[in-house]
Write a protein that binds this DNA or RNA. Structure first.
Lengths: 330, 330
DNA sequence: ACTTTGTAGTTAAACGTTTAATCGCAAGTA
DNA sequence: TACTTGCGATTAAACGTTTAACTACAAAGT
């Protein structure tokens, strides 16, 4: 036995004005005579009227929600991105419509296509190669992508992976490491930048790089590959992981195997997830500023949605976070 | 120079049928003669027609999105809840409209009120006391709450906090601990259940309980309160934390102060966040099944939205996860 | 042959807003 | 006085669907 939800027409009738007047009043789009203003205010309060945003969206073509497609919300790196994005969205009066593609590229297309009609714009964190992204442009909504893109007319936001990787590799060399390995995740578009920068830096010092590849960017996978890396003839003296999750998993497994960290092997990762600070040794990492990236992406996107001129991309400076997981071997 | 988006009317005109026919066709609501079916299929493909869900929502009153209000997405416990909720929502063809209240109860009301008109139902994780939740019921949408509620007509989903707390306290006693402390977070509705169960269990063994209270359920706060707990005349031999985040922070700070874990003090938490497994010692915790809770809440909510008879609440069994952070003092 | 039943498709009225165009009126201007 | 200007308020047409009620017609039953 619910009372029917009052419409703008009910308000107009009760206040003795037209619906247009009520609409303009609610949207603060005009000045009003004192009498009318008082009456409408009163009636709205009495009836408990609240504008129906769906109906408004039909006319204005704006929904005040933004689609956010993420690879895995439970990955703390992406969680931070979401957090930053959501903060900015909320500040501007937008809500996030969340999609989690669960690291499965096949899910992205149907989910994004369905999403596109319900939002004003989309922030997309994807594993789809840039060359296969054509259909996304047909979606007809403003978009911003996570991660560096080569095409210059598509907006993106990214940390400077190359620079961060270089900083880290340089530091390892300076600390006297000579047998450095990289545990990558080649399905990610960002992996190749990191790998290239590391390799280049080491080559500059005449050092080789052993590369391993993980099947998922997860702690579990880091644990799994540990024995393959450590139980060979001579294991590396330092390991750079594609991300902190993998590094955490690797460290745990290595310790379980009886290795001492960082004496037997130094470990480092990317992302600076919160939990890297709580292991022993604490994890050295490249902070790519996840939350700021999310926020910057949202600023960019909302700028485009609201038609304000804005840059097409935004590269944020990384920071090397030094903690106990890297030994000094000099 | 964008081409205008085709409407159902464009399709109807091009196919030589009425809009009603097209509508029924896309919703699979009727059988059609072979000719009509073929024509419509063809025209839809040619024009690239996609139904506008906003317009449909106006009529049906259904949006196929569900509001999820969360205290802090970046808290791994809630991240898991979101993950589980989102999985089930997606399975049923719903999207989550996310709201993050940032542990600030004052933000909840305006955000939820705005949200309520755009969704079919809401899953609310709140810090608002049950006695002040009246206005939420006026929102006129199906709702499910996170955490135990006393009122029996409001649907909720929760882990069995009392049972989990009892299991943990009992284990500590069995392992020979006699000076047990609790680091709580009294702003949470769930804190009091845990505290009560622990106190009751210890009282049964004639043991006292020292209670501390944190200002936030965060690792940082766990670090901050460490010295107050450990540097007194004689510190506890075991500490139960309101959640794993606080436990992680506490452990780190205690180790920094020179204490050895678990020899000097045993530590345990709640939630079984992934990262408790990667510290040294690894964290003993009560797994309240965050992800299953999120999923169960969504099942319950969707059941109510779609008018299927369902239970009003769902209590999920906790599990004690024993790891290295608890010593054997017998 | 006449009625009934069932089915494929149409008509037209919603749903609850926004907004361009218009209007009436009072105040200001020439 | 007559003409303009500005402003508060109205009119009515959208926006893109769904759906109850209806129609036309063919097949089946009597």
């Amino acid at each position: 036995m619910k009372k029917p939800i009052p419409t703008i027409r009910d308000v107009a009738a009760a206040a003795g004005v037209s619906t247009a007047t009520v609409s303009k009043f609610v949207n603060g789009a005009q000045r009003f005579s004192a009498g009318v203003e008082a009456t409408i205010t009163q009636v709205i309060a009495d009836l408990g009227y609240r504008s129906n945003p769906l109906a408004a969206s039909m006319i204005t073509g704006r929904t005040r929600s933004i689609g956010l497609s993420v690879l895995d919300v439970a990955n703390p790196h992406f969680t931070s991105v979401v957090k930053g994005a959501n903060r900015v969205a909320q500040q501007h009066g937008y809500n996030l419509l969340l999609v989690d593609t669960d690291e499965n590229p096949d899910r992205e297309r149907p989910l994004l296509e369905a999403l596109s009609r319900r939002v004003d714009g989309m922030f997309v964190i994807s594993r789809i190669p840039e060359s296969e992204m054509g259909w996304m442009m047909e979606l007809g909504k403003p978009m911003v992508f996570f991660g560096h893109l080569a095409q210059h007319d598509i907006p993106w936001v990214a940390g400077d992976d190359r620079r961060g990787a270089r900083m880290l590799a340089r530091h390892l060399v300076a600390q006297g490491h000579r047998k450095i390995a990289y545990l990558g995740f080649s399905k990610s578009r960002r992996d190749e930048e990191r790998l290239a920068a590391i390799r280049e830096c080491l080559a500059g010092h005449g050092l080789p790089l052993v590369v391993h590849d993980a099947g998922a960017p997860s702690a579990r996978e880091g644990e799994r590959v540990c024995s393959a890396i450590m139980l060979g003839a001579d294991h590396p003296d330092a390991l750079i992981c594609y991300n902190d999750l993998m590094a955490l998993g690797f460290m745990k497994a290595a310790q379980t195997l009886g290795f001492r960290l960082p004496d037997d092997i130094s470990v480092a990762g990317f992302d600076n997830i919160q939990f890297g600070a709580y292991t022993s040794p604490a994890l050295t990492t490249v902070d790519l500023q996840s939350e700021r990236l999310g926020a910057a992406a949202m600023e960019l996107l909302i700028g485009r949605i609201e038609g304000k001129p804005a840059a097409t991309f935004n590269m944020i400076e990384p920071q090397l976070i030094l903690r106990g997981s890297i030994a000094n071997r000099v």
